[in-house]
Design a protein around this nucleic acid. Structure first.
Ligand code: SF4
Ligand code: SF4
Lengths: 159, 159
DNA sequence: CAAGTCGTGGATACTATACATCCACGTTAG
DNA sequence: CTAACGTGGATGTATAGTATCCACGACTTG
């Protein structure tokens, strides 16, 4: 079980957009260079975040991406769902209905104990991620780093 | 992010062993046929469970697998750790130290906010799975099914 | 209006991991 | 001894994630 590393990219980019002064979109080239990521592939994940309504994309020169809502209204779970999808990592294969010990379909009307335990664990995981918003994360970024980013992006963007 | 379906196999087999009368080992062929699983591949997962100390394997004729401890002392998390490994699905790539916006190593001494949020969520997931033991799951298996299994395995095993 | 910038979305190739099988070997009951 | 059973390594296949490219439409600027 491995989480797509696109989630890490998405969180970092969202965090950077949350740090940036509002209303100034950052082009994907700046985001990609800032973290040393492949621009073309990062574009896919930014599209996913846009489709999910977390980011807003402005085309044309001096365009780019900005947060679609205040950072306090975007949770880590939102980002994860947009990039990784909300599906549970556990997918039941209904093996109890296979083989010599197969259960009859009428005995499998409701989800079995194994599946429901997995569902509950998945929900606990999601709740933990839903409890954290982007601005809470921004506040834990070291001041020196935030200042450097703000200065760099302020001078890079207008070029 | 997808959980190995070997976890489902391991849980079902462990559950079946918990249902079976104690002391009577089930050979892997019986387990595989009972759920219609590839025997050779299932063997890998059973080995993992054995190495983790959850199952006990007896070689030779009339050998097989049995639980190494009472079902009440084996949690779902034990099975998952044995087969899938205890690692977190989120693996930090340290992209904050890459690209034009790279942070200096001395600014990355302790895990950042993103990573720690992920760790907490992973722990919440694990705690949820640790809270459930095999015998709790056995009790939720329909009586009819348990009876059928017990009868079938009682007549199949001695052949 | 023309040109250059930027996001969109599809097609394609590469890579890591999980899935699956096979076989040679050591151990044990009968 | 012999047949049944688990162990462990080597090997091949399938699937999902990673990465790149290109044609297109939208927009801003001059
Ligand atoms: S629903 Fe439960 S019993 Fe059926 S295959 Fe899934 S885990 Fe097994
Ligand atoms: S530790 Fe935090 S900042 Fe560094 S790469 Fe991982 S998620 Fe990003």
């Amino acid at each position: 079980m491995k989480l797509s590393e696109g989630v890490e990219w998405g969180l970092h980019c969202a965090l950077l957009l949350a740090e940036a002064p509002a209303g100034v979109p950052l082009p994907r080239r700046v985001l990609a260079e800032h973290y040393g990521l492949p621009e073309a592939y990062l574009a896919k994940h930014l599209q996913a975040l846009t489709r999910a309504g977390l980011l807003h994309a402005t085309p044309g020169p001096s365009g780019g991406f900005r947060l679609a809502r205040p950072a306090g209204e975007i949770t880590v779970l939102d980002v994860l769902d947009a990039i990784e999808g909300p599906a549970s990592p556990f997918v039941c294969q209904e093996i109890r209905q296979q083989g010599t010990g197969a259960a009859r379909p009428e005995e499998c009307t409701r989800p079995c104990a194994i599946a429901s335990v997995m569902v509950r664990a998945h929900q606990a995981w999601r709740e933990s991620l839903r409890a954290v918003t982007l601005d809470q994360l921004v506040n834990r970024v070291p001041q020196a780093l935030r200042k450097r980013n703000r200065a760099k992006l302020g001078t890079d963007a207008p070029s």
